[in-house]
Design a binder for these strands. Sequence first.
DNA 1: GAGTGGTCTAGACCACCCT
DNA 2: GGGTGGTCTAGACCACTCT
Lengths: 241, 241
Amino acid sequence: MSKRGRAGEPPLYAQIRDVLLDRVRTGALAPGQLLPNEFELAAELGVSQGTVRRALDTLTRERIVVRRQGSGTFVAVPDPDEWLFRYFNIYDAAGRQVTPDSIDTLASTGLANKRECERLGLGLNARVVRVTRRRTHDGVPFIAETLVLPADLFAGLAERAEIPNTVYDLMQRDYGVLVGRGDERVTAVAAGSLEADLLSLSPGTPLIRIDRVVYAIDGRAVEWRVSLCHLTEKHYRVRLT
Amino acid sequence: MSKRGRAGEPPLYAQIRDVLLDRVRTGALAPGQLLPNEFELAAELGVSQGTVRRALDTLTRERIVVRRQGSGTFVAVPDPDEWLFRYFNIYDAAGRQVTPDSIDTLASTGLANKRECERLGLGLNARVVRVTRRRTHDGVPFIAETLVLPADLFAGLAERAEIPNTVYDLMQRDYGVLVGRGDERVTAVAAGSLEADLLSLSPGTPLIRIDRVVYAIDGRAVEWRVSLCHLTEKHYRVRLT
DNA sequence: GAGTGGTCTAGACCACCCT
DNA sequence: GGGTGGTCTAGACCACTCT
């Protein structure tokens, strides 16, 4: 890392961000841990306090760290509820975010098929963990979904006694995979006989099909999920900015 | 505006942001206009250059201004293509954003009904402009939509010879309404006989229903739109962050 | 070369949290 | 009261754009 931004090199504050992010990724800084204050970090890294601040501001926006005035800067702790809601954008008629439960969860491991390799960016002969489940609201099933995850990243996942309601904080807590962003493709489909059965519908009922790929902060795809949702008095919410 | 952040007062950079935003809103700074440089603004407003920079950084993120190193800071010019794509999140199978055209556009003015008043936050006896149209891709109609706008904000809109393909840059160019954000509710519905006719489908075909309210930067609702979309080989894309 | 925004530094004071 | 992040200032140098 050089002091002056020589040709093509990223600015100092971005380099500092990367250094700190690496410490979180490798576990040198663990979730919940208090970071040194700005002046200590600045001295250690050989930059000014303002540059450290700028790096920490970036990490705050990326939800990697949490800053509390008067207390300090902490590595963010993945919170199950927060993660459940962050990617679960279904709201009821009154505008309240819906809290789903999971039932009939089944997990297995197998060889990835062509489509799975494609969506997850895996090589040939890669193994995947597949999870199927139904999600309910007030006891009524309204989503049937399948999750596909690279088995080498999540060893032993299929053998766990229980798959939690949200897998994203599990990824971060137990497997050290930092979730960064996701990409969804939404379409409308007619319920087939399978979905009709799972969700107690007439075949042909219109459903929302959400095809989601989630990427780790380093860009690797870590989950492909397809959710078929029957939305009555509920909707999928998108904020346009 | 006070120099020191006294109890409860927003920070200086936020106050400066508001001052500059007001100049854009009132037209004192017109779209495309070059702003004074950071030092001139700082001198004029009685703050330091760093504080002005921070305000301008905020306005840049909000897409109110555009900064070009070596050239200066300009008030953003609403660009039809940019605005069309910004809120039109439909992509084809190859991942390319779809460019829609409009046909059969009809506009009229009338008294707002209860639902319209509700969604647009209008008082009783308010008038609205209603626009219906179909949108096509490669000449094939795939969306039927209705737009509802407060008539007092958009005087003469219904009488225009042509309603453009995207109304959002029109709002900003011709009516001085700065578009800030939108909120969409997505559900799946079965095509009724009307939609089936408009989009050449069999009744009962699953459609995506997008119910959108768009708000100006000052928080007023400026459009309520319902789009019924038939997505074959296309999808509605959502980025999760 | 003149002018602009982008980066980086150094230092001050304030508001807030904890003990 | 001592330590932390949040704000604000002043000034330097760099990279980029235009003429």
